[in-house]
Design a protein around this nucleic acid. Sequence first.
DNA 1: TTGTATGTATAAGAATTATATGTATATTTG
DNA 2: CAAATATACATATAATTCTTATACATACAA
Lengths: 114, 114
Amino acid sequence: MKKQQQLYKGSLNTIIMKLLEQQGKMYGYEITQKVKEITAGEMNITEGALYPALHKMEAEGFLDVEMDRVDGRIRKYYKLTENGITETASRMEELENFIRNMQNIVNPNLKFGY
Amino acid sequence: MKKQQQLYKGSLNTIIMKLLEQQGKMYGYEITQKVKEITAGEMNITEGALYPALHKMEAEGFLDVEMDRVDGRIRKYYKLTENGITETASRMEELENFIRNMQNIVNPNLKFGY
DNA sequence: TTGTATGTATAAGAATTATATGTATATTTG
DNA sequence: CAAATATACATATAATTCTTATACATACAA
């Protein structure tokens, strides 16, 4: 993520998992481009954050890998495992809670402002 | 913050600044209790995170300190400096962008789902 | 007297991310 | 044709942030 968004660390895994849930399977570079597209360039996932995150989630059993060769270049497609699907649901719940809590802090008058 | 919320690192400074903006001045322990209250116990700011964050923001010129003695105990009241007020506004904008971007990722069909 | 609440603080380590760099092929631009 | 850009993966080093554990001190309740 860009420095300007460093405040919201920890969302990277949630973003990756949610995109994989929607798209079925994706490769690393594709993920960076998709996030850039969706956020109109406001979020940029760096390789130094992306690849360690992917490898860690694979090691934790949340992702499966499938290698393809396209145009002479290697692509590693990642997809969610069953555990990964469960974990994604859990992280989405956390994200919703986080957003709700932040909105309650920012706007204390609106008790149900979401 | 609790382990379950470690995903959203970096929000601590934003939370502290916004509370100080609303309350005028607060002391450390008061901040932890206020966050616990607002979030119904879902977010717990630990001392190990809070005090280094307060000291850093003070060193950066975003906070001013005022010491009081209450019931034999020392309280350090923190309040925003002028630079702190500007910084708070900037961080609030970042928070709004972050939430909007996350909602766009999570719910790609709703272009204005916020 | 043991635990809980209030109040501030630091040290050691874990986790996550940024920055920089490296390798390699394909395509576009000058 | 050469150079730059895009595609594609990866790691090493450092910075930042947070957790866990610990420390000190007062007050009150069980």
